[in-house]
Design a binder for these strands. Structure first.
Lengths: 320, 320
DNA sequence: TTGAAAGCGCTAACAG
DNA sequence: CTGTTAGCGCTTTCAA
């Protein structure tokens, strides 16, 4: 019996006599034979593996994203390789450039630091879908939500509550990310629309994306005499830190200060007070990213597609 | 020039004349040559990839674990494949049994549902390190903390505060996991030691590991008239839900009810009140798991090693 | 329906 | 120091 016949059986091909198939299957079970993935990859050229690259999987938004992508990938027969770029732009570059060929069939990448120009230089053959809010090169597929609009809506919600001293919290102190830039832009637009001039003193940067950094930054600002009646946070982690800083200084939320977050991660519904927050349609985002990636893997050509998924403002106690 | 020379240059081997190396490097850059990982794998037998299998990466503890393992793996030149088993015992079995050979060099696996017997049946050649608290077969390496002791200490802390009606919250209603079993055991031991008979009515199960499930379960128990002055939670997620259920019913923490969690995930220091919780030495756990795995990959034989890493009770506002 | 031969792209072993 | 040869384990092509 040739290895070809075995291969046919293993891959469930036609034209194998039932008796032969039976015999092969029995031998496989007896010998504990396991096909070697690597050899198969070498000859077929497909790895059956997708890569997800984000800055830090432990950030709740990315953790939830990874869960979704991993699930969908598994349901479609793909394995998932996880890559963390940390806060290193070199690591982000490496995701695109130091690409060993044949590692994965496709890449889902949320850049944090890389700008459009560098992203655009990317011309390797691995199919890519870009996530997040970094302005994205024309040629590459991307899925994101409309950050500027969502930020405008969230801010408008605070203004509608009658708040007039609204702060923005949690953007990077140095090297403003595109994400933060767009959210701040929407924030300012909402203010301008009702005739309030954006005040730089009300934009409180933090040295890192973490509750601690936000708590420290907000705490310092408050201690320095800053007066606010609302805070719009770059993300739910910053919101958590902001809630703490306010609480420790005796400010009541939402009575004295209303707070809005971004992402609607699982814990947002359990904070005290529960958090009003921008909820991106994360399930749809993950689904579309994988769908688009699979189409490219299947050989679909054409120009980059740039898809916007929806978002909603989930109103909870912190800004009712 | 032969492909061998190129291979030598690419792999940074000795015995290549500087001039030749130079020439090769230049050609590589010009042609945009990228070595094919798969072919290399086939011939070397090493994949340079490790697998991490947990039930759900979006659970904060696993998200933080994944961050650590991913980082350490990357620093040692490994890629990381992420596998989620969800709440399916079949998926956990598949992690061990449906193993295609040559996929990864090693596996770090935290089983949630699989018992020792099934784990022990595992006799494939891929090196494995088991994480978590499931009783682990003799033959397989494992890293965990001493759950029974840690649970005893946490409960003792509550008793030392003078609390006498201490509840346990968050274990599975059906199919008690080994993790929960051990934590409950330590919980009961601490009670027994000071002469309190464990009361089943004070062990409040939840249908899932989530804040919502815990909040619902605790809320129902409270509404049914349960009186407690302390709650020991299976994990920080349950603690978050417990805090909410208590707050919604007007119970003050820690004045009326003290609360202790488990894991010390990032958000624990920002809950309101901040959470007293059991902190496993997660960094050491991750480090050791990878170290042991690498030793096995390097061919080290010998019986299974079962390492305990340390833990501390981090005392914060919820149980001062 | 099954077998034999070729070859995916690389590295190990060895010879030059 | 550099080139040649063989072969990793599989699938593909082609012949029987």
């Amino acid at each position: 019996m040739s290895s070809k016949t075995v291969s046919n059986v293993v891959n469930d091909f036609v034209h194998v006599a039932p008796a032969t198939r039976e015999k092969v299957l029995r031998s496989i079970a007896e010998l504990g034979y396991q096909p070697n993935v690597t050899a198969r990859r070498l000859v077929t050229g497909r790895t059956g593996t997708l890569e997800l690259a984000v800055s830090d999987v432990s950030l709740p938004y990315f953790a939830e994203l990874a869960r979704r992508i991993s699930r969908i990938a598994a349901s479609r027969g793909y394995r998932l390789l996880l890559e963390q770029t940390g806060s290193s732009i070199q690591a982000e570059r490496a995701v695109l450039h130091n690409r060993e060929s044949g590692l994965v069939d496709g890449l889902i990448f949320q850049p944090s630091l890389l700008g459009t120009e560098e992203l655009a230089e990317y011309t390797v053959d691995t199919p890519v879908v870009l996530l997040g809010e970094n302005a994205v090169p024309e040629a590459v597929d991307s899925v994101m939500i409309d950050n500027v609009s969502a930020a405008r809506e969230a801010t408008a919600h605070l203004l509608r509550l009658g708040r007039r001293r609204v702060a923005f919290v949690g953007h990077e102190a140095y090297g403003l990310s595109e994400t933060s830039r767009q959210r701040i832009q929407g924030f300012r637009e909402a203010l301008t629309r009702i005739g309030i001039a954006p005040d730089p003193a009300l934009e409180i940067a933090a040295p890192a994306i973490s509750s601690q950094a936000a708590a420290d930054a907000v705490g310092r600002a408050l201690d320095a005499g800053l007066v606010v009646d609302a805070v719009f946070c770059r993300d739910d982690l910053s919101a958590l830190g902001t809630l703490r800083a306010l609480h420790e200084r005796g400010h009541r939320v939402p009575e004295d200060v209303a707070v809005v977050g971004w992402d609607d991660v699982a814990m947002s519904a359990f904070m005290r007070p529960t958090l009003t927050t921008v909820r991106p349609d994360a399930e749809e985002l993950a689904r579309l990213a994988l769908e688009m990636l699979e189409q490219r893997i299947a050989g679909q050509g054409g120009p980059g597609r740039h898809v916007l998924v929806g978002h909603t403002l989930v109103v909870r106690e912190s800004a009712p």
